[in-house]
């Protein structure tokens, strides 16, 4: 079926999301809570666009709006730009540090926040990607707790999470680097829990936690006689883990 995005005629499959069609056609829509392996949760609202259908205009999130009829999409009208800019401002006021947010702020020309009280240390923008990643791995060792302004990502009872295998996938998907991972003396510390790291049988570098190694072996029946790194360490393992599922 045919849709018009920013004046351009695009071909779309029934039920395909606006974002995917736009990207295929080289139209950029900013996203935050949407990542390739972990499809949209519709929470950051950065990807809002205007949809006109049967003469009526509405604001929707492009990452989750399925195309089921003849629609016209505007991704960057004055109104959308204004609101998107406000969303970036709100995110920046919440979590000012972190490269990702700084870049967005520059892109939207948002000056240093002076009206609101800002917590300089906060990095998490509550996009929910970390929780989704861990859920996808099958562990759900962390989740969002509380409501409203006190909402945050945390392990159960805010204690070192029992179900965590220390894979650091959560930290890897986090767009703002809000999840702290430390590695030293053959140990990895994440979520206040220390994990023993295993050495790669090939190059001899520490690269995987014992629990992660066991988890992959047992849960997924993958035959790994001995731990072997594939160079990119946590980054690629995390990716692989996510891809496997």
């Amino acid at each position: 079926m045919r849709v018009i995005i920013d004046g351009k005629e695009c071909e779309a499959g029934y039920g395909e999301y606006i974002l995917d069609v736009a990207r295929r056609n080289g139209i950029h829509i900013p996203t935050l809570c949407h990542s390739g392996a972990l499809p949209g949760q519709g929470s950051c609202r950065l990807c809002i666009v205007e949809v006109a259908e049967a003469g009526k205009k509405k604001v929707v999130v492009s990452c989750l709006y399925p195309i089921t009829g003849e629609i016209e999409v505007t991704t960057n009208s004055e109104r959308i730009y204004r609101m998107r800019r406000n969303i970036v401002r709100l995110l920046a006021a919440r979590a000012p540090s972190g490269e990702f947010i700084k870049k967005l702020r520059e892109e939207y020309g948002i000056p240093e926040e002076t009206r609101f009280k800002v917590d300089e240390k906060e990095k998490c923008i509550l996009c929910g990607l970390c929780v989704r990643a861990c859920e996808e791995i099958g562990l759900s060792a962390i989740s969002t707790v509380n409501r409203g302004t006190t909402k945050k990502v945390a392990p159960p009872f805010e204690e070192p999470p029992e179900d965590c295998i220390g894979c650091a996938s959560c930290a890897y998907v986090c767009p703002t680097g809000a999840i702290e991972v430390q590695e030293f003396e053959g140990k990895r510390v994440i979520w206040n829990r220390a994990f023993e790291l295993l050495k790669c049988a090939g190059c001899g570098r520490y690269f995987i936690t014992r629990q992660q190694y066991e988890y992959i072996k047992n849960k997924h029946g993958i035959d790994m006689k001995e731990p072997l790194c594939d160079r990119c360490r946590q980054k690629s393992t995390a990716e692989k883990l996510i891809h496997l599922l």
Binding site: S43, L46, L91, A93, G148, T149, K151
Partner: peptide, 20 residues
């Protein structure tokens, strides 16, 4: 602000700043 589920940015952060 207390009853917002806190999932999406405009509601969670927007209400918080309007309240401020």
């Amino acid at each position: 602000s207390e009853e917002s589920c806190g999932k999406c940015t405009p509601c969670r952060e927007g209400i918080r700043r309007m309240l401020e």
